[in-house]
Amino acid sequence: MARLELANVSKSYGAFDAIQNVSLAIEDGEFAVFVGPSGCGKSTLLRLIAGLDPISDGAIRIGADDVTRRPAGTRSVAMVFQSYALYPHMTVFDNIAFPLQMEKRAKADIRQQVERAANTVQLTTRLKDRPAKLSGGQRQRVAIARAIVRKPDIFLMDEPLSNLDAALRIEMRSELTQLHKTLGATMVYVTHDQLEAMTMADRIVVLNGGKVEQVGTPMDLYHYPANRFVGGFIGSPPMNMLAARVLGNGAFDVAGVGQVVMPRLGRKLAEGVAVTLGIRPEHLGSDVAEGGFTARIMPHNVERLGAQTMVHARIDDQNFTCVLSGDRPLTQGEAITVGCKADRIHVFDESGLTVAKA
């Protein structure tokens, strides 16, 4: 396995800059996840690492080797795609063995490597079957086993679970995480699903518009987002965003709510400054404490999920969501008071950067 380093990597298609000056280091054995909305450049960046597309500027290093201009086949990377890309006329064994057969390995070596990889992904009993007889999850395991037998320095995975149903995605998430631990491999995984990123990654790379917004552990990004974009993208349901203006004496004038006194936050900011307050739905509760945010809301939809009750309302014509613990006896159209402690509130400036957190 090896360390991956990107130095000022850019990719342009004519006048369109798909990747803009990305510098990033992924350590040996790390599970890194690229996450962001559709069109943010995460799959493009993965293709640049794989060598499937040439970069416009910058450098890519795998271990001590500069692979910037090397063809894909010489980079010691293995890629698993969203589509399984299996040969339907071949057995599972032959699909897994294909890259070794292309290298003209000895038959005994091929059999040993295929059986070892199949055992790793729990496909030992299906080696004689063709892909048509397999479930979606099993087909994806074949694609992963085919990558394993190459013994690459780096595994690259481009939304490998997006074609699976919800229950199977959860199962495969766990299996991929365990596979990473078993192999001790350097893995780079692309997804638009921030839940996958949060549950699988050692570190998350948040991309937006071809740029890196923030790199950090899942909990770093959750608790300390660098800006409004990261705060709103990481977390489910998304963070509530409320327009506000700083008043004197540590208070805020919050649109649609009124004056909210949060001395520790307010004293960090100049009077009259326009800001956005970010509050996670799960940090709101009906047990309102002093020294934080409090609002009276009118639910227009209540989702009772058993372990949680999700309340949807509007404040200043913005969506406002609360996730309350337990099965709450709430009904649509019945006003409730919710609040959040000040130390869980994020403040973003007019450009979207984080400026304060109590």
Rank of each mutant, 00 (worst) to 15 (best):
A295L: 15
A244E: 03
N301V: 15
D220C: 11
G272K: 14
V275M: 12
G292E: 07
R296Q: 13
A295Y: 14
A274I: 06
V288I: 09
G258D: 11
A243R: 11
I297M: 15
R267W: 06
G278K: 05
V273C: 10
K268W: 01
M262E: 09
R296H: 12
A274R: 12
A243L: 10
A226Q: 07
G216V: 05
V260G: 00
S236W: 02
G272A: 14
E271S: 07
P238M: 11
L247T: 01
D287Y: 00
Q259G: 06
S286L: 10
G248Y: 08
G292W: 13
S286P: 00
A255Y: 15
F233E: 01
S236T: 01
V257L: 07
I297G: 05
T294G: 08
E282M: 03
A274V: 11
E282A: 09
G292R: 14
A243T: 00
A295K: 15
A270N: 11
Q214T: 02
E271D: 06
P263Y: 14
Q259W: 04
T276P: 00
Y222K: 08
T217A: 03
H300I: 02
Y224T: 10
V215F: 07
P218D: 12
A244C: 08
Q259E: 15
N301K: 14
F233T: 00
P263F: 14
D253S: 12
G272Y: 10
P237N: 15
G248E: 14
A289M: 13
G292Y: 11
L284N: 01
P281V: 03
P238F: 06
G266N: 04
G232Y: 02
G231V: 00
V257D: 04
Y222V: 12
V302A: 14
G278Q: 05
R264I: 05
R264F: 13
P237I: 08
E290L: 03
I279T: 02
A255K: 13
G256W: 09
G258T: 00
L269V: 04
R267P: 00
A289R: 14
P263G: 14
M239F: 03
R267G: 15
R280Y: 02
R296D: 04
V230T: 04
A255S: 12
F233R: 05
A244G: 09
F229Y: 12
A243D: 15
V261D: 09
Y224L: 09
G285H: 04
G285M: 03
V302G: 13
G232H: 03
M219Y: 00
S236V: 05
G272Q: 15
R296V: 08
G258Q: 06
M239V: 01
E290V: 01
G266V: 01
R296E: 13
I279H: 05
A295R: 15
R267H: 09
V302T: 08
S236M: 11
N227K: 03
R264C: 05
G248R: 11
G231W: 03
N227R: 04
D287F: 04
P237G: 09
A270R: 14
M262A: 12
S286D: 07
Y224R: 10
M239E: 02
L242E: 08
L284D: 01
L242D: 09
Y222S: 11
G232A: 03
L242V: 09
G292K: 13
